[in-house]
Write a protein that binds this DNA or RNA. Structure first.
Lengths: 248, 248
DNA sequence: CGAAATGTTGACTATATTCAAGGCAAGTGG
DNA sequence: CCACTTGCCTTGAATATAGTCAACATTTCG
């Protein structure tokens, strides 16, 4: 993957993935008219700097990223991970500047929108405005889950929960036949920072889960040999089909 | 406070508080037309049960509440606290049911809205749709902050942060001359559950902060004798005037 | 090939939890 | 008015979970 590709939104391959709801033609045209040329950024790039004043908006088209906050002495907390289809930059609207940073976990492809696109979408298409509210509320529910983990789960339970939920999200983006092993670009440091653990303890706990046959990571791919048992450790439920989600 | 009072939105006393932005007459009328009769619920009441299927929407008119999640063995994590002006129930839209509970921390007064009000507001008044997105993003930023605390701050720093931020929010709702001592209805158990600490440790840490002259709680009122020092412990910055916020 | 990032491991320490008791104040019912 | 309950706060001792520090191994990549 390199260079710039500008697939029109009406032919966007992401939109064919089952978890995304179909947009009406009018709405799709509006999105396309606001969208700028796709951008590619390398692994590790800071997409939005913590504290940046004016930042752009993006839909993550390909690759993974994460939102994070840091304390002045460098301690870092990852808030949640961003996968293709996630919308980046909503938060800036509420605080005159970014209260968190966003960093690319892999090479990422972004569909940029001007800063006032959030307002334009609301104004010109209530349906899309509603979709944006939906995305904001959905991202909050991810953070809620992480907070529950970090606040009340043991290290083992936290890792189990993280692996479980990321596996589900990653799998949902793949064709059914490829869902045994899903892309998993996190380092142990990322997991530690997401779960509020030290690197050493994350490593030990991860090894324990692997010894129990609950997960396996190899070549950047994650597989869960015994999802039931892992879900039991994680205390994570809700097997139902996740609701369709909007894609801006 | 008892009985039912139905101040029309156009004469709502909350709207006179400086932190809330003024709504246009048309928007105000729409809000008023969707709103039901105000409801009073006692301290401790469950406003939204965890896992409830269909839940109402409310604007918190008076009193405090909190959002929480629990694990099956009873461990509880408080996600964030709700103060007058906060909107309750947005999350339900994204998951077909509540993924978290909401409980009243004091007696609360609620302005109820029908379940489809979120959509109606978007459809009939883009400006209000935008406001709802704003509220969702803003609540997420509160959760982000708590996650940073719970994941990466020490017990002492966590308590300092919680006291600092709640003090600011509570003070902003009061007339300037009453901002020395603000209402603070949390028990130590609430603080423990919000910060991912045990009750015993929360107590010990709280005593230490008090001994250092960093806070004082008496008769349900919180005062911060040395806000600068407390902010330093908390590693919390941003003194600027907080942006005006919408009130639905 | 060498440098840098990531993963691995052990020994030691610290922060925070658990468990167990008891105190105090407010409310309730006889 | 008093006994009793209930909820919240307080405290100490023992324990456990997770962090820190310090190496070293392995992989990746220019």
């Amino acid at each position: 993957m390199r260079g710039i590709v500008n697939t029109p939104c009406s032919h966007c391959p992401l939109r064919d993935v089952a978890i995304f709801k179909q947009q009406q033609k009018r709405e799709l045209q509006l999105i396309e008219s606001l969208r700028g040329d796709q951008i590619v950024r390398p692994m590790g790039a800071v997409l939005i700097a913590e504290g940046a004043a004016q930042t752009a908006l993006y839909t993550l088209f390909a690759g993974w990223a994460f939102r994070y906050k840091t304390l002045t002495d460098g301690r870092r907390q990852i808030l949640n991970f961003l996968l293709p289809g996630d919308f980046i930059g909503l938060q800036q609207k509420v605080a005159d500047g970014a209260t968190h940073g966003v960093e690319a976990l892999t090479e990422v492809w972004l569909c940029p929108f001007p800063r006032d696109a959030v307002w334009e979408l609301h104004r010109q298409a209530p349906e899309l405005g509603y979709d944006i509210t939906w995305l904001a509320a959905h991202e909050e529910s991810l953070v809620d889950n992480n907070l529950l983990s970090v606040g009340r789960r043991s290290a083992k339970e936290r890792l189990a929960t993280l692996l479980m939920l990321l596996f589900k999200r990653a799998a949902a983006l793949l064709p059914p036949e490829q869902r045994q092993r899903v892309p998993f670009p996190l380092t142990q440091q990322h997991m530690a920072d997401a779960l509020g653990l030290s690197l050493a303890h994350t490593h030990r706990t991860l090894r324990e889960l692997e010894r129990l046959g609950l997960h396996h990571i190899e070549d950047g791919l994650l597989s869960l040999p015994n999802p039931r048992a892992l879900a039991r450790v994680a205390d994570v439920w809700g097997d139902g089909v996740p609701p369709e989600r909007p894609l801006i």
